[in-house]
Amino acid sequence: MAGTARRKLLLMGRSGSGKSSMRSIIFSNYSAFDTRRLGATIDVEHQNLRFLGNMTLSLWDCGGQDAYMDNYFSSQRDNIFQMVEALIFVFDVESKELRKDIETFVLCLRNLYEFSPSARIFALVHKMDLVVVEKRQDVYRALMHSLEDTSAMFSFKVQGFATTIWDESLYKAWSNIVCSLIPNVGIYQKHLQTFAEISEVDEVILFEKTTFLVLSHVTSSKSPGFESDSTRFEKISNIIKQFKQSCNKLRSQFQSLSLRGSDCSAYLDSMTASTMIMVVMANKLVTTGTGSEEAESGVVDLLENDDPFSGEAENNIILANIKIARKMFEKIEHMSLDG
């Protein structure tokens, strides 16, 4: 195997801001409730994660207590800030010393400017659940406004997210962060588009298997009005991730889901070794007979289809299409990242 691409991510922010919590939820299967048990991080905790076949995410969770912080900016300076692909700076909305937090943020930028000038900068305004709903937007905008100005001074562009571990906003932020590090994201998108067109489905979403972060999604222009909830992708991440935990309690793993909903049918299954695909189709008012014959002959066997409730011919066509697309996506997954 060719050398895997390693991406270094720095997690910074004051002690108690929620860095280890979000890392544990996204990458280590904690529930939001479990994070109450986390102690303060001692110095830097490294976590290396295989992501999408041949990529390694190297997470540097930097304990935020003052003594450690001082070290990061003095004796450990080059060690910490070298070869950084992305800085994820976590602000606690309830922080009493916001000015000091911003100063720390600026210190990070100054060091990155020197050691990793191409790093991407993400600011997470975290614990949003503690702010009353009406004020959230204002609080977030105010902080981001000052961060944007300071970042510009170091010619960085900061991307911000309002997050909390108690809802799907965490998944939205981390999907964006991780996708920004995957060079193949455009290729996934293109093939997902083709897949959606060929199989004539209304929506397709591609997830990373262990984190359930959204890698890519396509909604057909003919889709019957799913747009009403633009956060549905990260909501699915959140929902399925929680269900995966229930499955773990049975010492088993989640494999697939098929939903025959009131307005739509959805099918979620493995795509490749490290991705899952979800396909959504609006319920047809009139059931069409065309195509079912071919689908029923052979395809079922071909797929070793053991989903007992995929009785509908339409489902079988989707399964067949996923099967065909699988090869293509496996290829993308193993493409060299350095090329």
Binding site: F243, C247, L250, R251, S252, Q253, F254, Q255, S256, L257, S258, L259, R260, G261, S262, D263, N283, D306, D307, P308, F309
Partner: peptide
Amino acid sequence: KPIGSTTRLSN
């Protein structure tokens, strides 16, 4: 339509 759903686990 009445809702139905099915999930499969690895075991």
